[in-house]
Nucleic acid binder design. Structure first.
Lengths: 215, 215
DNA sequence: ACCTGAACACCGTTCAAGT
DNA sequence: ACCTGAACACCGTTCAAGT
C-alpha cells in the first residue's frame, strides 16, 4: 500500500467508471483493505482527486498547434488539447475549477504557456496574470460542456435556456431578445477559437498596474 | 407543500449552514415530511440547487459602478457585485460553473450586461459571445476564491503552489521561475479589475467569424 | 394526484484496538 | 509506524402502498 498505488488505482477507476466512483470506500475495496487504511497516504477525497487530475494533465499535448503560424494559434492549440483531456472526464473538470493545482504536470503546462506568451512578445507581468485567466477559462469551458453530455437532463437544461432567451419579453429584455440568436450561435470549436484569440488580444494590450509588476 | 416553499426553505438552510446541508433529506426534515415527497416538486438535487442559485442572483447590484466614467468600469462593477454574492456561498459558486442557468434573475443580469456592452459600442455579435465569457470568468473566480476561505487546508494548498512556483528548477522551468513573483502578485481586487478590463478590451477588438453573426 | 414508509445502495471520516 | 473493524452520521433516489 503506497500513495502511488492508490493514485494508480484511482486513475484506473476514473477511466473505467468516472470520478463519481473514485471514492475512498471503492478504492479500499479495489485494494483489498478498509477505507481507514487509505488515510495514511491520502489526506482526503479532495487530495485524491487533485492527484488524479495532475496525473491526467500528463496527457496534454504541449506541441499542439506548432504547425500554425502565430503564437496565438499555438496557445489555442495547447489549451484545446487541455480541454480535450478534461472533456473525457466531466466530473474531474468540475473539481478542477475549485482546485489550486501544483503538481508536476500542471507546472509543465504552465511553463509551456508562459514560453509561448514570451515568444509572442507579451510583457512578462501581463503574461503572468494572463496565463491564469487562460487556464481558468479553459477549465471552466471543459466543466461547462462536460455537464452537457454527461447528465440525461442536460438537453432539457439547454432547451430551457434557448426558450428563455427567445421568449424574453421585448419590453423588459430588449437586448436579450435581439441577440438570442447570436448568444447561441456557433460551434463549440468556433467559440473556443474566438475566445482564446480574444483573450490573447486582451492580455497583449492591457498593462497591469505599476506596483504589481514585481511582488 | 409547494415548489416555492421548498426553494424558500432551501435558501434559509443555505444562509444558515451552507449548500452542503441543502439536501433532500434535510429539507424534508425541515418541512416535516419524508424525502420522497419532495420529488413531486423538484426533479433532483441539481434542480434544487439551480433554483436556489437564481434566487440568490436577485441580490446582484445591477447599478454598481454607475458613478464611474466608462462602460468598462460599469461592467466590472456589476460583475464584482455578482462575485460578491457568490463569495458568500462557496459551494454554490462551484455548482454554478457547471450549471446552465435560465431563471428570471439570471436573465435580468444578462440583459443588463448586454445593455452596458451596447452602450460601450461593442458590436452585437461580439457582445453576445463576450458576455458568456465575462460571466464564466466571474463565476470561476468566485468558485476558485471561495475554495480558499472555506476549507481548512486551503492555506496549505496555496503555500504548496507558492513553493512549487518558487522552487521550480531554472533548467526545466525557466519562465515559471522567473515569473514566480508576478504569478502570485497583486490583491484579488487588482487582479479582478485587470481581468475585466482585459476582457473588455479583447471583446471590443476581436471580430467573430462572419457566419456566426446571425444563426 | 399527491404523499409517504421503507428500502436499496451507497458516502467520508474517525478512533480505539491490534500487529 | 502502519493497518483495520466497526461505528457515527449521513447521502440520493425509487417504488409499492396508501389517501
Amino acid at each position: 500500500l503506497t500513495r502511488e498505488g492508490i493514485v494508480a488505482a484511482a486513475v484506473a477507476v476514473l477511466r473505467a467508471e468516472g470520478l463519481e466512483k473514485v471514492t475512498m470506500r471503492r478504492l479500499a475495496h479495489e485494494l483489498d483493505t478498509g477505507p481507514a487504511s487509505l488515510y495514511v497516504y491520502v489526506a482526503s477525497t479532495a487530495d485524491l482527486h487533485a492527484a488524479v487530475l495532475d496525473e491526467l494533465l500528463g496527457e496534454v499535448d504541449l506541441e499542439a498547434g506548432v504547425g500554425a503560424g502565430d503564437w496565438q494559434a499555438r496557445v489555442t492549440g495547447v489549451l484545446i488539447s487541455y480541454i480535450g483531456v478534461l472533456f473525457a472526464h466531466p466530473a474531474l473538470a468540475r473539481s478542477a475549477v475549485a482546485a489550486r493545482p501544483s503538481g508536476r504536470h500542471y507546472l509543465r503546462l504552465l511553463e509551456r504557456l508562459l514560453a509561448l506568451l514570451d515568444e509572442g512578445g507579451v510583457p512578462p507581468a501581463q503574461a503572468a496574470w494572463g496565463v491564469n485567466i487562460l487556464l481558468q477559462v479553459a477549465t471552466a469551458t471543459a466543466a461547462e460542456h462536460s455537464g452537457r453530455e454527461q447528465s440525461p437532463d442536460a438537453e432539457v437544461e439547454w432547451s430551457a435556456l434557448a426558450q428563455a432567451l427567445h421568449g424574453a419579453a421585448r419590453a423588459t429584455h430588449p437586448h436579450v431578445r435581439a441577440l438570442a440568436g447570436s448568444l447561441l450561435a456557433g460551434s463549440p470549436q468556433e467559440r473556443m477559437s474566438w475566445c482564446f484569440r480574444m483573450l490573447a488580444n486582451g492580455i497583449e494590450s492591457t498593462p497591469v498596474p505599476a506596483q504589481a509588476k514585481e511582488a
